[in-house]
Structure formats: C-alpha cells, structure tokens
Design a binder for these strands. Structure first.
Lengths: 248, 248
DNA sequence: CGAATCCTTGAGTAATTTCAAGACTGGTGG
DNA sequence: CCACCAGTCTTGAAATTACTCAAGGATTCG
C-alpha cells in the first residue's frame, strides 16, 4: 500500500463512517463531507483512564467519539468533581470551550476508546465557506443545549428511582440509535460515576438499583443492564408523582 | 422625518445599543453590525405574562432581551412545568429550537419587557457570508452551554442554602455586568418561580431566605435583595461542605 | 377595594445522606 | 494459575434535610 493510499484511508473516510448521521457530516452534501474529512484527524486512540483534554488547557480541537465512551467532568467551586456528561460514539465533545478559548472541563476515557480530533481553527475556516457545515454545527450545538436542559430537568425534584429510570431509558435510546440493543446493554461507567452525575451517593445508587430490580423493571448484573419492563420504566420515569405542579 | 429616516431609526441601531457587548454584535466589525441591524426587528413590546413563543410552535426567530426579564419553561414528561432559565437584557433566547425547528420551550415575560426579534432564516443567510457573525453565534451558543452546565452543578447535591446563595450571587454578577448594583437589586421573578428553577418548594424557599437573613448574609424585602456580606455568601455558596468528593 | 396570587409559619413525614463495616471484582504480580 | 490488592459495591442503622399538609397573612393588580 502506498503512502498516499494510507493517508487517504486515514483521513478521508467520513462518508463511510457508520456514525455519520449522528455526527458532523450529517446533512452535508458529499463534496462537503470530503472537505470536512480533509481536516479530521481520525483514529486517535485513548486508553481507559486517559485524559483527552484537561480543564484549564488551551482549547484547540473538538473531538468526536468513534468507539468506546468518554466522560466529561468539571471542578466545582468547592473543589469537588462533577460529571457533566457521558459521551458515546457520534457525540461531539469540547464545544463548551469555544467562548473562553480554554477548556472548562476535563474529558476522560471510560474504556479504551478512539476519537476523531477536529482542529477548531481549521473547522472555523472551513465552515466560513461551507454554509451546510456551519448549519450542522449550529444544529449540534443546539442539540447539546437541549441535552443539558434535559439533564437539568432530570436533577430537579425527581426521586432517586425516577432519576435512575430516566437515565437508563436515555442510555437505552442512545444505544438503540447506534444500532445496538435497547433492551440489553453494558453501562460504560461505574455506579460511582453514575451517582455523581445524578447527584446521588453510591449507597443510594446501590439501593435504588436493587429496588428497580425488586419491582421487576430491570435485571442488573454488574454493569450489564437488561430492561425487563420498558413500559413500567417509562411510567416510573415520566409518571406524575414526585414533582410539584408549577403553573406558568 | 421621511419614511427612510424612520425606518433607519427603527432598524439600524445595534451599534448604539447599551447591551452591544453582551449580545450578538459583540466582536463584530462596524460594517457587520450594520448588516446585522438590518435584519433585527427592534422594540417588540411584551407585557408581563405574555408569551414570546410557546413550546411546540414553529421556530422562526431568536430573540434578544432589551429591557425587562423573561423566563423560559419546558413541560416535563410528567406534565409539570420546569423553568429552565431567567433571561436579562442582552441574553439571547430560542437557540434550543434550532435542531428540531420547533420550540421545545415557552418564553414568558416576567415583567413588561422589550425584545429584539431576529428571524433565524435571515440570520443564517447573513452569517453564511459574515464569518465574524458566525463566530459570535458560536460563542453565544457555547456560552449558553456553559451556563446550562453551571445550572446542572447548582442542582447537584447542594443544600437549599447553597443553591439560593449561588443563584443570588449569579444574579448579582449578571446585574453588575449590566451596569447595575451588585449589592442591591430586585429579583424579577416570584419565589415560586425561583423555587421551581432551583428544585425547591415555596415553603423551603421562604425558610431558606429567612435563614440567610438570620445569618446576616442578605437583607430581603419582598423582591428587593441586598447582599450584606458577599464574602460569607461566597463561602456558603462555594464552601467545601455539602457535596461529596468524586475523583476522576 | 377586592380577588387572586403569593408568601409565611408550624408540625409531622418521607426521602436521602452519613457513618461504619463487610463483600465483591478485576487487574497485577509472584 | 492463583493470591492479593485497590477500588468498587453492598448492607444496616441513625441522622439530617427538604417535603407535605394545613392554614393564616401579606402583596399585587385590576
């Protein structure tokens, strides 16, 4: 294989990517996908526990997860770490650094992962003359905004059971939209991390998992999750009890 | 005054706007500010309680608050309303609608307000050939993302006292950055709304306000707030107690 | 001025946290 | 290949915090 062929295989492959419709190339005409692929540095390997970027570091690139899973954490004012999100293949990370030009959060691989790095300066330049790319970027930012709002709702006046039910259903959907099973999946993070994300201590996480299992809603074996009764889960997650009515 | 002069007064005024540095025109060269002003419909009046847009409505414009205050609310799956944010002059509203092309949330004026309406299709067209505007849009989206992450942290394992302290300090900063007093200000929303936003019932809000007052940190008279001891407030808001340590 | 909404206060209840300690797990090295 | 180690997870009992329910009082707006 010649050097050029290798280069092309390494860099110019967004249109073959399984995750295309979840990621930056979605909604882009073929020619623009090619141009985008030209600036994407593919197949960066990040082994479990390794930092993709660190809070305070100068912002230079955004990243798209290819395989594996990544968590982003932020140091709260009181010194504690708070997990702001879990990122699966197709998700774009680092967009919160655009304003300040420094990363406000740290990204850590939860398992061996591979990511695409997209230098932001080049992306900006390219999107200046590629309206479709620009629009897709705006859509992705808007999507992230929506996801954060969803997290806010999740954390607001919901019981531990409801929070866990919602987050499990959310993962179920996210796995399904990546072609995996919606019923059975493996959570990529520890209970500790999930609890941190949900605002619950590990003890409560443990007890809550057990309670859901006792109600026959899920079946848990370590990090393996099976959603047994999805309807009942939805009923619990989105049921009327547990939150006040607040009229506009 | 000729018709053209009137038109110009109504539409072409972003560079004189006091809020310029907080809003879309920030970081824009003068000529681009003029072009932006050309598509901005200024001085829409929204009286207290009036909807700026409603969840489910077709998305067509984003809005910038000029005077007054606006809250955005979203209907949670269980039917309850959740307040996702309070918006002061200079804030841009509606960016969460870009992905789906329908508004996911409702915007209501908390007091008589005026806003600038910016038709999104025109903004998109303009920014396609105005890189600086595009970059500013990205910065604003990124800023919003950061703000939502901050809200998430606020809601995660913090006591009622801490939440209230944080939100009061945040308003203090926001008023200060708009040229108003950081010590004394009038909250534009009811305790009910603030409680909904913070995930606390009105009774807890009332008791928590009283407790902060009892500690000599603030002085409250209706919606008027005076921050008496800002250092102690920061100590309370960002102090180490009240949240677990979670290591990466 | 009067209705409606908002705010406050008290007492009791339910939920999660804290503290403490033991069991499991996966990865490492002998 | 097995034993060990550190981190993770589980379990129980007590403490704390915010919620619920109930009712009276204060504002605000029309």
């Amino acid at each position: 294989m010649t050097r050029i062929a290798t280069l092309s295989e390494t860099r110019d492959n967004c249109h073959n990517c399984r995750l295309r419709t979840l990621c930056l190339p979605d909604n882009l005409p073929e020619e623009d996908v090619g141009r985008l692929a030209g600036i994407v540095q593919r197949r960066k390997l990040v082994s479990r526990g390794t930092l993709l970027f660190q809070a305070g570091q100068r912002f230079s690139s955004i990243y798209a997860v290819r395989t594996g899973a990544v968590k982003t954490t932020a140091l709260m004012a009181n010194g504690d770490e708070h997990i702001s999100g879990f990122h699966l293949p197709g998700d774009v990370i680092g967009l919160d650094a655009i304003v300040s030009r420094d990363h406000p959060s740290t990204a850590v691989a939860l398992e061996n992962a591979s990511v695409c790095e997209i230098p932001y300066a080049e992306l900006e330049t390219l999107s200046d003359r590629t309206p479709a790319l620009q629009h897709q970027l705006m859509r992705i930012m808007s999507r992230e905004l929506l996801a954060e709002q969803g997290t806010n709702q999740l954390l607001t006046r919901r019981s531990a059971e409801q929070r866990l039910a919602v987050v499990l259903l959310t993962f179920s959907e996210r796995f399904a939209s990546r072609g995996l099973s919606a019923q059975r999946f493996r959570l990529p993070m520890s209970r500790l991390d999930l609890g941190n994300y949900l605002g619950l201590v590990p003890e409560t996480m443990s007890r809550t998992f057990r309670r859901l299992e006792g109600q026959g809603l899920v079946s848990i074996a370590g990090k393996e999750v099976e959603i047994v009764d999805i309807c009942a889960m939805q009923g619990l997650a989105f049921g009327a009890q547990g939150a006040q009515a607040a009229r506009a």
